[in-house]
């Protein structure tokens, strides 16, 4: 129990610190790297709560895809972050007010949760239904049986999205030199080397 508590505080502290660093660090690449650290610690918190599926999804989707995409955007677009930061103090009061309202709302919601223990009793089905199997197993057991139709439909929708992205953005430029591995492998000495008899004292 004590180990779990220690890890909870460790993950939480690192997560909050890295979240602060995301907005505080001057270098945008560092910001994204701190964001990834925050995601990893959030995943750790999920595992402590027994939600290992969410933890894996968080790492796979957010770290594996979203954060890497951010990194690409930051590195490829020439955004002047110093300029963006100008006037930070002007916006501070409004930002602080919004943050304060958000905190109050969160506290009210969470306060309501703590005050009313009946809320827990309203959960219709314990998840997972059988406490002896893990989350991932419970999801897997229904995903490919009960919900196989939806799963396949979702796959088709993603296929359409992929076709759409290719149709609307892919352009074949005729003048670009591309690597053709077939041509490279298929080359023979006869095609690439020419032996000429050169008379001494004369060029070709």
């Amino acid at each position: 129990m004590i180990v779990a508590t220690v890890f909870f505080y460790l993950f939480s502290a690192v997560m909050i610190a890295s979240a602060v660093m995301v907005i505080a660090s001057r270098n945008p690449v560092h910001s994204v790297l701190f964001l990834i650290l925050a995601f990893f610690n959030a995943a750790g918190l999920f595992i402590l709560m027994g939600a290992e599926f969410l933890a894996l999804i968080l790492v796979v989707v957010y770290v594996g895809a979203v954060a890497v995409l951010f990194l690409f955007v930051v590195m490829m677009l020439d955004v002047d972050f110093v300029q963006l930061r100008e006037g930070f103090l002007n916006y501070l009061p409004v930002g602080a007010l919004i943050g304060f309202i958000l905190v109050v709302e969160l506290l009210l919601v969470l306060g309501g949760w703590v005050i009313s223990p009946d809320a827990v009793a309203n959960i219709a089905v314990p998840i997972p239904a059988d406490p002896s199997v893990s989350n991932i197993q419970a999801i897997g057991e229904v995903l490919y049986t009960r919900y196989v139709f939806f799963f396949q439909m979702a796959g088709l929708i993603l296929l359409v999205a992929m076709i759409g992205a290719i149709v609307l953005t892919l352009r074949h430029k005729p003048n670009v030199k591309r690597q053709s591995i077939v041509d490279q492998v298929g080359r023979t000495p006869e095609m690439s080397v020419e032996v000429r008899k050169v008379e001494s004292g004369k060029g070709i």
Binding site: M153, L156, I157, V160, A161, I163, G164, V167
Partner: peptide
């Protein structure tokens, strides 16, 4: 079904 149809229609 609606999304499959709509997404193809947007494209």
């Amino acid at each position: 079904g609606l999304e499959l149809q709509s997404l193809a229609a947007y494209v």
